[in-house]
Design a protein around this nucleic acid. Sequence first.
DNA 1: CTCGACTCCTGTTAGC
DNA 2: TGCTAACAGGAGTCGA
Length: 263
Amino acid sequence: MPELPEVEAYRTLAERALDRPITEVHAPDAWFLKRGLTPEVVTAELDGRRLVAARRIGKQLLLDTSDDGPTLGLHFGMAGRLVVDETTAVTDLVYSPNDANPAWDRFGLRFADGGQLMVRDSRRLGAVELDPDEARLGPDARSVSASQLRDLLAGSQAPVKARLMDQSRLAGVGNLIADETLWRAGLDPARSAASLEPADVRRLHKHLRAVLEDFIAGGGSHTGSLQEQRHREGVCPRCGTPLLRRTVGGRTTFSCPRHQPAL
DNA sequence: CTCGACTCCTGTTAGC
DNA sequence: TGCTAACAGGAGTCGA
């Protein structure tokens, strides 16, 4: 997906959709609805209500509804976008087409004033559910404390990168944020989480926070220093050393063998 | 419980 | 130019 910074932009955009009566629910793709939700049920639950708050936990967008209605949970998968009244929050989304294709409109709400909120996802890896279990997500990466980060890394033999991307322990970090953060912090993504020293964790925390704020301010997860070097001939932006490309935690991973040495 | 492999889906791109 | 295979910012499930 869209990682945390993109979903934060979606959340801000979704605020434009608040307090507008819902007159129609567009759910043409039943497969896109999860946890047993059907087009009939989601229509009955949302029709006539209004969105009253736009929240975000990690990569999950949560839209609360009026009159004690359900919370609408939106996931954007790897290519999903949010569109409100034909305005898109994020213009450049790597690995996702920019064009508007009606067939990619997987779920949407029509408002009484004629406007709309739409989830546009070419790849169908996004999801819509009602009253998602918010407890399944770890603390949001934008506000995670240093001690929380220390605790969620402690004792794990999994690669530190895999641990950072485990949404049940830390919500919001995806592949690009993980690589950029570990690169800035000078940590090998494949090191076991438990092998980090206290100073490593403090540095990681500092850079994680900085990367997130940079990406939120700068327009997305693709704006990192490492991003333009994310290809087979890529070199370290800092020292020019050819980047190491491998799979860590099941995801394509780029790192500088010089600044991010293995133990 | 923890962790890695596999799977879902489809548009783009690299390579023959 | 055209076809095919690999690959992609995510995450759920299964099994060792």
